[in-house]
Design a protein around this nucleic acid. Structure first.
Length: 513
DNA sequence: TCGGAAGGCCC
DNA sequence: GTACGGGCCTTCCGAT
């Protein structure tokens, strides 16, 4: 810093041109909750910026949403180690993450002033930060770092250290994954594009010959009605519902034409065309999901359809894909102490297979019923997923399931009661989730069951990622990690919770599958 | 030009 | 007669 001292702890905030244009225009560094400096960045590198601190692994660097700022600062190579993130802290404490609200929540009487960039732009009627006077931007940026430091000081002893350490250990791992990206096989991509475009055009032309745009739900509803099929109303009664579930049941060939078109258009528009000419696909990760899962944004790499995955290549020639096998059901078995489930898992069997045999139904139905239980399904939704119109049959599925897995069933009931009574539920590692009673009894019941299961799975998976940090991680998908290289997995991955076996399935391939 | 609604992909 | 948990993104279309 200018005065020559070297703080152990700084708060950092970066201002960008706008929310859309992430070119950094300046950054602020706070050394305490009382002083901060602003450094313009937009022209040549500002020599005054304390890059040595920002790049120093030994300095604790406090950000509010560090994965965003680290990405914006990418050309300046900021350190991703030894980070403290107040946004992550807020989420761990079930608080609103927006900084200006957070400041208020932490201590309304001594709250530090701060504004969101969005509010500031709206107030000034400006579209980018460059339209604002530089000193205003500087003040805003300094206010943010001061507020960030201030929030950090007040929350650091409130947040559970164990959880926070896990989250912060993930930061360099996730940041590195974002930076590396995944190689795209442009030949394969182009082949997919050609193939899918042919199909898409075929169905679009058919639809246009009938005088409607198959991409418009409104027109689809209108034309089907004109031809004698009347669809149910959508939410709000503004339109007719034309989703897969509805159109599948429609006999008019136009319906399946629309579904075909949508299928190919979806693949093209979301996954294939946006990667035209790209050497690699990059994403950013977030740590703000309600259940503690990691999400992927600005090119979601967690929802790529299997048919499209072949265009992603390993740099090394081999992907090692490690997948936690049926981890949520194993967690259910463990948390509920269900002896039947545990027995099936211990003897190396498949739960869905066992369910199917017991209930005398196909594997797929058994699987749907099982997942329905984890998600807190009602009879009606079991009817839908199991594809039956017979309500009594669906009722039977649930009853049979509850008889076979009695302890799990009882645990599910118990969770629901607890959630309704206490307004909160807990994971295996003790993380607490607050349930919003205003969302209604049904929602609270479902989340009371699902949050502990999904949340515990996320906790196990995060620890697995940390155990794999020395490997070249290319992607992560909730219970699956894609590693670039033909590698061995670390020992102990299947015993992250000592007495819960979580087997990992390995797959080595020449491209993603 | 923005933003909500509708639809659809993943675990 | 009401939504089965958690995500993200694209398209259409009406409002501004």
């Amino acid at each position: 810093m200018p005065d020559g001292s070297s703080p152990r702890r700084i708060a950092i905030d970066v201002e960008t041109v706008s929310l859309k244009d992430r070119t950094p225009i300046g950054l602020s560094v706070a050394t305490s909750s009382r002083e901060a400096l602003y450094f313009p960045l937009w022209n040549e590198d500002n020599q005054d910026v304390p890059w040595d601190l920002i790049r120093d692994d030994g300095v604790t660097k406090i950000y509010h949403n560090c994965l965003f700022d680290l990405m914006v600062l990418k050309p300046y190579k900021p350190s991703a180690n030894n980070i403290a993130d107040t946004l992550v802290m807020a989420h761990l404490l079930n608080m609103d993450g927006e900084l200006s609200n957070l400041v208020w929540w932490v201590d309304p009487y001594h709250a530090k002033p701060c504004r969101s960039a969005k509010a500031m732009l709206e107030l000034a009627g400006a579209s980018t930060m460059l339209d604002l006077p530089q000193d205003e931007v500087a003040i805003k940026c300094c206010q943010d770092t001061i507020a960030t430091m201030w929030v950090y000081e007040r929350l650091k002893d409130k947040v559970d250290r164990g959880y926070f350490e896990v989250e912060m250990a993930l930061i360099p791992i996730l940041h590195r994954m974002s930076l590396r990206g995944i190689a795209i096989d442009q030949e394969e991509r182009a082949a997919l594009e050609e193939e899918l475009t042919d199909e898409m055009l075929y169905y679009r032309n058919l639809a246009e010959a009938e005088g409607f745009n198959p991409g418009s739900p409104k027109q689809v509803g209108y034309i089907l009605a004109k031809r004698g099929t009347f669809l149910p109303f959508s939410q709000g009664h503004k339109q007719l519902k034309t989703d897969v579930k509805v159109l599948e049941k429609v006999l008019d060939p136009l319906a399946s034409m629309v579904l075909q078109y949508r299928h190919y258009q979806k693949a093209l528009g979301t996954y294939v065309i946006p990667l035209r000419g790209a050497e690699r696909a990059y994403t950013r990760f977030h740590l703000d999901a309600a259940t503690g899962r990691i999400s992927s944004t600005e090119r979601n790499l967690q929802n790529i359809p299997p048919q499209i995955r072949s265009m992603f290549l390993p740099d090394s020639g081999t992907f090692t894909d490690a997948d936690f096998s049926q981890i949520e059901l194993r967690i259910l078995a463990y948390m509920s102490g269900d002896r039947e489930m545990q027995y099936i898992f211990e003897s190396g069997g498949s739960i869905h297979q066992a369910t199917a045999e017991f209930m005398n139904i196909p594997y797929k139905r058994a699987k749907n019923v099982g997942f329905g239980m984890i998600y807190g399904a009602t009879v009606e939704t079991v009817m839908e997923t199991a594809k039956t119109n017979d309500k009594r049959l669906a009722q039977r599925f649930i009853e049979d399931w509850s008889r076979k897995y009695r302890d799990a069933w009882n645990w599910i009931q118990f969770q629901q009661e607890q959630g309704l009574l206490n307004g909160k539920v807990h994971t295996l590692f003790g993380r607490e989730f607050v349930l919003v009673q205003e969302e209604g009894e049904g929602a609270v019941r479902r989340k009371s069951v699902n949050y502990p299961i999904q949340g515990s799975a996320a906790e196990i998976f995060k620890r697995a990622l940390i155990m794999c940090k020395h490997l070249d991680l290319a992607n992560q998908l909730h219970d699956e990690v894609l590693i670039d290289g033909d590698v061995e997995l670390p020992v102990g991955l299947d015993h992250i919770v000592p007495d819960l076996l979580t087997p990992v399935t390995l797959k080595k391939t020449a491209r993603w599958t």
